[in-house]
Design a protein around this nucleic acid. Structure first.
Lengths: 87, 87
DNA sequence: GACTTATTTGTGCAAATGTGCAACTATTGG
DNA sequence: CCAATAGTTGCACATTTGCACAAATAAGTC
């Protein structure tokens, strides 16, 4: 759980998540890269971290990689923590 | 929000939160220090971070400081994020 | 195959972070 | 006042982290 929170607890990574929140369809890395003003290599690494924690899902589409949010799963994990904390 | 997640996204800090989850009554720092096996100074710093993010509340009791979890507030913030992510 | 585009990876660096120890500051109790 | 206890802070150190740039990989297009 700490790893998930750490993944979400970085400003640019959370920005990527918020950006994906607004997208009904998967987005490629170049598009996502624009929302946080960092190099594409940096966005790539951030997205990799998010993928490792199951926050985003990657779908290969030719030479592009389309990212989308694992909405239900992430929401469920956050709610589980909230429930545990509320006791 | 990123700051809250960052505060929770560190192993020992999350351990402190879990420990406080189990406590019906406020606990002092020495007691909490035992749950994660670190120096008392480290626990002090972690608790300070958690307090700054509103995760825990401090109550002075003589020479001790009693910590308790802001259960409702933290749970609400996590659920708000979950709602936003689920869209 | 050569070229273009999208993305990842290697590298180096500066800043942030977690840690333990020792010294310091309360605050209580004798 | 003095000793003991609880907690904080300064310091040094090791590790991690985020970043940019350049090079490498991958895949479509001509």
């Amino acid at each position: 759980m700490a790893d998930l929170l750490k993944a979400l607890g970085e400003f640019n990574r959370l920005s990527l998540v918020y950006e994906l929140c607004e997208c009904a369809k998967p987005r490629n890395a170049m598009c996502l890269c624009d929302c946080c003003s960092v190099d594409s290599s940096v966005a790539s690494r951030h997205l990799k971290v998010l993928a490792q924690e199951g926050v985003v899902r990657i779908e290969r589409k030719g030479r592009e990689r389309m990212y989308s949010l694992n909405r239900a799963e992430v929401a469920a994990r956050l709610r589980a923590l909230a429930d545990q904390i509320e006791g």
